[in-house]
Simulated assay, not measured.
Amino acid sequence: MSQVKMTVNGKEMSGEAEGRTLLSQFLRETLGLTGTHVGCDTSQCGACVVHVDGVAVKSCTMLAMEADGADVATIEGQAAADGTLNALQQAFQDHHGLQCGFCTPGMIMSAADLLKTNPQPTEAEVRHHLEGNICRCTGYHNIVKAIMAASGQDVSSIAAE
């Protein structure tokens, strides 16, 4: 076991981890941040997306020790301290971009990554960026609409499904 230290959502955190401990496992089981979901353990679903040093990564593909000293952002750090949702989270709620909610943390973290580099993506760009995230409930239409709305674009002409 080795000590792993990182800044998570702006707070210094640490815990012990074996060399084989995945970042997703460390976040959930050691640090108690269960918003990062694990749906597949094979890097297929995207439910475990977090940001490490500003880059979106599937945390089931990274060892906790690789994040030692890193700045990690999870879904728990997206809302304001008083619980107010950020614009992206609010757009998911307003535009029904979730159903069961299992994929939502990974979708929001992936979408935040997209909007950081492309503040007003087209529908095609949003769909392309989300190719690594799987949703089994929504059919993606309202997820795409929510992301575009969060970017400040008019989505009134996009039909609801």
Score class of each variant (00 low, 15 high):
35 G>H: 00
112 A>S: 13
27 L>P: 07
62 M>A: 04
32 G>T: 11
89 Q>S: 00
64 A>K: 04
81 A>S: 15
72 V>G: 05
6 M>K: 04
15 G>A: 05
86 N>S: 10
57 V>C: 00
118 N>L: 12
108 I>R: 06
82 D>S: 11
15 G>W: 12
116 K>I: 01
66 E>M: 14
35 G>M: 01
86 N>E: 14
11 K>D: 14
9 N>A: 05
105 P>W: 08
32 G>S: 11
110 S>R: 13
23 L>T: 09
36 T>W: 04
17 A>Y: 12
52 V>E: 05
45 C>A: 12
75 I>P: 11
34 T>P: 02
108 I>W: 07
43 S>A: 14
101 G>V: 03
18 E>Y: 09
95 H>E: 14
45 C>Q: 10
35 G>V: 09
18 E>F: 05
42 T>N: 04
98 L>Y: 13
88 L>K: 10
61 T>S: 12
51 H>I: 04
24 S>A: 15
38 V>Y: 01
73 A>R: 15
17 A>Q: 08
49 V>P: 00
100 C>S: 07
50 V>F: 08
81 A>Q: 14
67 A>Q: 02
98 L>R: 02
122 T>M: 03
31 L>T: 05
30 T>K: 15
77 G>E: 11
82 D>L: 12
37 H>Y: 00
34 T>L: 01
101 G>I: 05
93 Q>I: 14
58 K>G: 01
81 A>K: 15
96 H>A: 14
53 D>S: 07
72 V>N: 06
50 V>I: 10
5 K>N: 14
107 M>L: 15
33 L>W: 11
40 C>G: 07
65 M>E: 10
89 Q>G: 03
83 G>P: 05
106 G>K: 01
44 Q>F: 07
27 L>Q: 05
64 A>H: 11
111 A>P: 01
100 C>A: 09
60 C>H: 03
11 K>G: 03
58 K>D: 01
87 A>L: 11
45 C>W: 10
25 Q>W: 13
118 N>P: 00
99 Q>M: 14
36 T>P: 01
115 L>W: 04
36 T>M: 03
109 M>Q: 10
73 A>W: 02
65 M>Q: 10
75 I>Q: 12
12 E>T: 13
24 S>N: 06
35 G>S: 06
14 S>T: 04
116 K>Q: 13
29 E>W: 01
43 S>C: 08
75 I>S: 06
121 P>Q: 00
80 A>F: 12
70 A>D: 08
17 A>D: 08
105 P>H: 12
99 Q>I: 06
64 A>E: 06
20 R>C: 00
9 N>Q: 04
110 S>Y: 03
100 C>P: 10
109 M>I: 05
57 V>E: 07
22 L>N: 06
9 N>K: 05
16 E>F: 10
20 R>P: 01
58 K>M: 03
100 C>D: 09
18 E>N: 13
80 A>Y: 09
53 D>F: 06
6 M>D: 02
62 M>F: 10
109 M>L: 09
37 H>C: 04
63 L>R: 11
102 F>L: 07
63 L>C: 05
106 G>Q: 02
61 T>A: 13
54 G>C: 08
54 G>E: 06
119 P>W: 03
81 A>E: 15
